[in-house]
């Protein structure tokens, strides 16, 4: 007998149901994600994340997460936490990996292990203002996945490709976004 089995711990049915529901209620699909940041000292900042807006109303998690950022000692900082650029790489890894699990679930593929090495190349001439032709951000980002799953190599590659196609962070990094920074 065939039973519906949840292979990777992703509730794909709920996601598919949400898609159907949101198609008939477009305004509920407009989400706003929120982070509160506060400078502590030096280059050390604390970010607090709790609620967000979505499904037509403010959503409270009933708890909050704290993510701190700082810079390493070679930047003459105290190295209290990861750098913001490492947070960006973590965000990309989290988004792509979660996507791989979701796509795998939807395609009935069991994942045994998923590991990734993420690297971002940066030339400091940009942020230090040494050479105006050098950009501040990453010149290139590499994500190398090692995946053990009950599927063919092509099927595993298709999971990774589909996850990139549907990833919010991948889109934000590969495509320009308008950023509005104001002072109250």
């Amino acid at each position: 007998m065939h039973t519906e089995e949840n292979k990777n711990g992703v509730n794909v049915q709920a996601l598919l149901d949400a898609r159907t529901a949101l198609e008939s209620a477009p305004e509920a699909a407009d989400f706003t994600w929120k982070v509160q940041a506060e400078w502590l000292n030096g280059t050390h900042t604390r970010n607090t994340i709790s609620g967000f807006h979505g499904l037509g109303q403010e959503q409270s998690r009933g708890k909050s997460f704290t993510l701190e950022t700082d810079h390493p000692e070679v930047f003459a900082a105290e190295d209290n936490a990861a750098t913001p650029v490492e947070m960006v790489l973590s965000g990309l890894a989290g988004c792509l990996t979660g996507g791989i699990a979701s796509v795998a679930e939807n395609r009935g593929i069991r994942l045994n292990s998923v590991k990734a090495e993420i690297e971002g190349d940066m030339n400091l001439y940009g942020i230090l203002g040494v050479d105006p032709s050098v950009r501040n951000g990453f010149n290139a980002i590499r994500v190398r996945y090692t995946i053990d799953a009950d599927a063919s190599k092509d099927d595993i590659e298709a999971l990774v490709a589909q996850s990139q196609k549907r990833s919010a962070v991948f889109d934000m990094i590969t495509n320009p976004s308008n950023v509005f920074v104001t002072v109250e």
Binding site: A161, Q162, Q164, I173, T174, N175
Partner: peptide, 18 residues
């Protein structure tokens, strides 16, 4: 400005063709 996702759209197309 162009998207940095060129490698992935090419990978998707190759996988689909295969």
């Amino acid at each position: 400005q162009f998207s940095g996702a060129l490698a992935n759209v090419c990978a998707l197309a190759d996988l689909k063709m295969n």
